[in-house]
Design a binder for these strands. Structure first.
Lengths: 191, 191
DNA sequence: TGCATTTGTCAACACTTGTTGACATTATGC
DNA sequence: GCATAATGTCAACAAGTGTTGACAAATGCA
């Protein structure tokens, strides 16, 4: 289970506590408003430990904001179901059991933190764009990826960050159906 | 032209300079990262004047972030052109001649500043939702407004804040055509 | 001219920030 | 047992924050 082996000594537990507290706060109020002292208070340790274990606030943020889209192989999916497949994938990634909340973390801080903004750019340029290239051919892949990104990130922004009531209230089924159709058209040009 | 009348005394000019500098910085790096001293430096005045003229950094932000969607009356538009009309309207509002950049200001700070987040919520709840209620009937208006908001805000986020290259590269025509179709479907349920 | 108001300058305040180093405490291996 | 390393505590630092008040310069009016 563990990656660095050894018994789960005391150090590892406080390390994990710090990371959990950091993720909670970064996701809730973004990078700038989250202080090392707040993180330490929630993790119930000394602020100095945060620095000792992670080097700096910046490095801690980088650790707290790692995540992978793990996009499914769209070339194997039914072509007519690419949209719904993608939306379903993102929804389960964002609010499924294994969701680690990294998306809100990035989205909340991307507006003012360059590390977060770059990470978001990398994710969508490096994963969404190639996936769509495979799915719909090379021509216009950039445009299609841009449109897809705008809809998916907009959904995440309204639902998890701004928490616009009408968007929060949307059922997963409705999102999959309606947004899925949009993504389908953007991705394939059909309809 | 002026609203408070009187000759445009020296005070009004520095007031305007402060506001312009504030808008520039708020739009570029958000509320938290923008300091009163930075604003003063760009406006080429003393930091104390910023407070003297606007009371506090918070009040200055509130002044810098006022704007109105001025949504067209959708009930009078061709029903089949609601989507394109809306997208065209937002594009000209965001990057037309009279664009004041208030949208990036709000969007960039909304993630961490409650004033900005509330303002965004108010705008979309108070203007987009009613407009769609008129346009497509009362039933499901909230859901439709939510979907429309997610696409429009996502577009603004990717294009002006995150500056994702594929989204920045989209031509206005393409946006009007492609996103317009999405908005059309969300707003009317047609297609 | 003189006076009063407006406009601007300067230094400092109280506070918070990330980060550091010296020291105490606890656990581990011999 | 002891020595050594790991882990935690504490106080302080330098820098930067929004904001304030006392004072100087400029401007307009009589």
């Amino acid at each position: 289970m563990d990656q660095e082996l050894k018994k789960p000594g005391k150090a590892d537990r406080t390390r994990a506590a710090i990371l959990a507290a950091a993720q909670q706060l970064f996701a809730g109020q973004g990078y700038e408003l989250t202080t090392v002292r707040d993180i330490a208070a929630i993790a119930d340790i000394d602020p100095a430990m945060v620095i000792r274990y992670f080097g700096s606030k910046d490095e801690l943020f980088a650790r707290a904001a790692v995540f992978n889209l793990k996009l499914p192989d769209l070339s194997k999916a039914e072509r007519s179901e690419i949209g719904e497949t993608l939306v379903r994938h993102f929804l389960s990634l964002w609010e499924g059991e294994n969701a680690n909340g990294a998306m809100p973390i990035l989205l909340r801080s991307a507006a003012s933190n360059k590390t977060a903004a770059n990470k978001l750019r990398e994710i969508f340029m490096g994963q969404v764009l190639p996936a769509l290239t495979h799915a719909g051919g090379r021509s216009g892949a950039a445009e299609r990826a841009g449109l897809v990104s705008s809809q998916l990130l907009g959904l995440a922004l309204c639902r998890y960050v701004l928490k616009l009531p009408p968007v929060v209230g949307l059922s997963q089924d409705m999102i999959i159906r309606e947004v899925g159709r949009t993504i389908q058209r953007y991705a394939t040009g059909e309809q």
